[in-house]
């Protein structure tokens, strides 16, 4: 068998130019997003120079921080091959919980935050258990908990904003503080994004998440305990959504059952899809999602600056989600027969 070409010892990657490698590393998806972003910025900036002002850029940054967090959680879930549409409600519940615990502990911000995160973890665990042990399709399961968690948040809060955290130094620091000139909100997003990025790209846990999303049967037969991963990913997503809820509390100065969190699931899923997460699982990255989050933030901000009727924003978000998924499906070459896989 000496004639068989033994697999070339990966001469290819080293041999390519730096430019080529950078392009490959970033991926087609990210580059198209970047181009879209640049075009959008140029378009908006040309008509409204205010756009480039430091204040406005900060507005965009703080506006995308919360939806960005949820989008990063969503990225993990989608890579796993599932979906979590309850994240907005989890954020709302966590927001209420953080403020109420804060009040109940006579002003302990750490306890309020910790409590909210624990509640987020529990919510994620409920999602995971309903899916794994109840055998409920992830969309249906989290659609149900989307309603249920929102209901719980309204019940405990009587539907009203709770507590006043606006004078607590910890919450104020979260909402308006800055480190090295960058708002704390953005730091939170950066830290979570980095952590999830490392988890997905450099650990066996992340690699197994991609494997499960790519082919769960193969992953299971290769010895991966897929139930544990599903529970774990939903739990992590719950915690991240709860962190988003804590930031909502910080920004508004009180616990908000609905306002500020409702509809975040749409933004999160749109960002993940636009960022290149394949809806069938196994593909996607934090970097793409982040770019898409920024793109969406700029779009929303630009539409406001240009004085476009805010109702158009919802139309635009809906359209973007559909377009992002259509592009994905066209590229995957799926046959146009029956319901999509």
């Amino acid at each position: 068998m000496s004639q068989t070409r033994v697999e070339a010892p990966a001469a290819a990657p080293e041999g390519r130019s730096a430019m080529r490698r950078a392009l490959d590393g970033a991926g087609v998806q990210n580059i198209s997003l970047l181009i879209a972003l640049v075009l959008l910025v140029a378009l908006i900036g040309a008509r409204e120079p205010v756009f480039f002002g430091a204040a406005n850029l900060k507005t965009i940054g703080t506006a995308v921080a919360i939806s960005g967090l949820l989008a990063i959680g969503q990225t993990m879930v989608i890579i796993l091959g599932a979906l979590d549409i309850s994240v907005g409600s989890v954020a709302g519940l966590a927001s209420v919980a953080s403020a109420m615990i804060f009040t109940a502990t006579t002003g302990s911000a750490p306890l309020g935050i910790l409590g909210a995160l624990v509640i987020g973890a529990l919510c994620g665990l409920v999602n995971g258990c309903v899916i794994v042990y109840g055998r409920v399709n992830p969309v249906i399961a989290t659609l149900a908990t989307l309603a249920a968690f929102k209901g719980v948040a309204q019940l405990v809060s009587n539907g009203r904003a709770q507590g006043y955290t606006g004078s607590d130094p910890v919450f104020v620091f979260l909402a308006r503080g800055a480190v090295a000139g960058i708002p704390t909100l953005i730091w939170v997003l950066i830290i979570v994004a980095l952590a999830v990025h490392v988890l997905l790209k450099y650990t066996d846990i992340g690699r197994n998440i991609y494997a499960i999303g790519g082919n769960d049967v193969a992953a299971r037969l290769a010895g991966i305990n897929i139930n544990r991963y599903i529970l774990g990913v939903y739990l992590a997503t719950g915690v991240i959504a709860a962190l988003g809820g804590v930031l909502i509390t910080a920004r508004t100065g009180s616990g908000q059952p609905i306002s500020g969190s409702e509809g975040l699931e749409l933004e999160a899923i749109t960002a993940a899809a636009l960022g290149g997460c394949a809806m069938r699982g196994g593909k996607g990255a934090v970097s793409g999602t982040l770019l898409a989050v920024v793109l969406l933030g700029v779009l929303t901000n630009g539409m406001t600056l240009l004085g476009i009727n805010p109702f158009w924003q919802n139309v635009a978000k809906g359209l973007l989600l559909v377009v992002a998924v259509v592009i994905q499906q066209v590229r995957s070459g799926e046959r146009r027969v029956g319901l999509p896989a």
Binding site: N215, L221, G282
Partner: peptide, 12 residues
């Protein structure tokens, strides 16, 4: 269907 991650590398 049961063994391979078709869209991933030989390494993976």
């Amino acid at each position: 269907a049961q063994a391979l991650l078709l869209h991933r590398s030989i390494r993976d």
